[in-house]
Computed example of a mutant assay.
Amino acid sequence: MADPGLHHDRSAALDDREATLARALARLRLEGAIFLRGEYSEPWAYESLPPQDAVAVLSPGAGRVILFHVVAAGRTWIETLDGERHWAAEGDVIVLPYGDSHRMGGTEPAVCVSVSSLIDPPPWQRMPVIQHGSGGAETHLVCGYLACDDPLFDPRTRALPRVFVVRPDGAARPWVRASIEYAVQQTALVRPDHFEAPTRIPELLLAEVLRIHLADSPATETGWLQALRDPVLAPALAAMHASPEHKWTLLELARAAQVSVSLLDERFRSVLGLAPIRYLTGWRMHLATDLLRSTDLGVATVARRVGYESEEAFSRAFKRELGNAPTPWRLTHTST
Rank of each mutant, 00 (worst) to 15 (best):
V71N: 12
H333A: 08
P122G: 12
S217P: 01
E208Q: 13
G38N: 03
P168Q: 05
V299H: 00
E252R: 14
V176H: 08
E84W: 08
A275K: 05
L141P: 03
K247C: 02
V113Y: 11
A257T: 05
E203A: 15
Y308E: 10
E312F: 02
L225Q: 06
A54N: 03
R17F: 06
P168Y: 04
R126H: 12
Q125F: 10
E221C: 02
V93T: 04
A45Y: 01
T199S: 10
A317G: 09
K247I: 01
H69A: 13
L6M: 14
L36D: 00
A178R: 13
T301Y: 03
G223F: 07
R284S: 10
L322R: 15
K319T: 14
G99W: 03
P161E: 03
R85S: 09
C112W: 08
L160M: 13
T187E: 00
M127H: 08
L21R: 11
Y182C: 02
A234R: 14
L274C: 02
L30G: 05
A257W: 07
P50G: 09
R173K: 04
E138V: 09
L210H: 12
E221V: 04
L204C: 05
L297I: 03
A236Y: 02
L96T: 01
L274S: 02
G307Q: 11
E18Q: 13
T107Y: 01
L141W: 02
R269P: 09
R126Y: 07
G63S: 13
L96E: 01
V111D: 13
D149K: 13
D3T: 10
A317C: 07
R278M: 00
D53T: 08
P121Q: 14
E208W: 04
A45K: 07
A303E: 13
D92L: 02
Q186W: 01
P155K: 12
A257N: 06
V165H: 03
L118P: 13
V232P: 01
R316V: 14
V65H: 12
G133P: 04
V232N: 04
G61L: 07
P97L: 01
E90L: 08
G144A: 10
W77G: 10
A197D: 00
G61P: 14
E47N: 01
V111W: 03
A178E: 12
Y279Q: 09
P97K: 05
A171I: 02
P4Q: 13
R304T: 15
V115D: 09
D150P: 11
A215Y: 05
R158V: 11
V129W: 07
L263C: 04
R316N: 06
I78E: 09
V142D: 11
D150M: 11
P326N: 06
L146N: 13
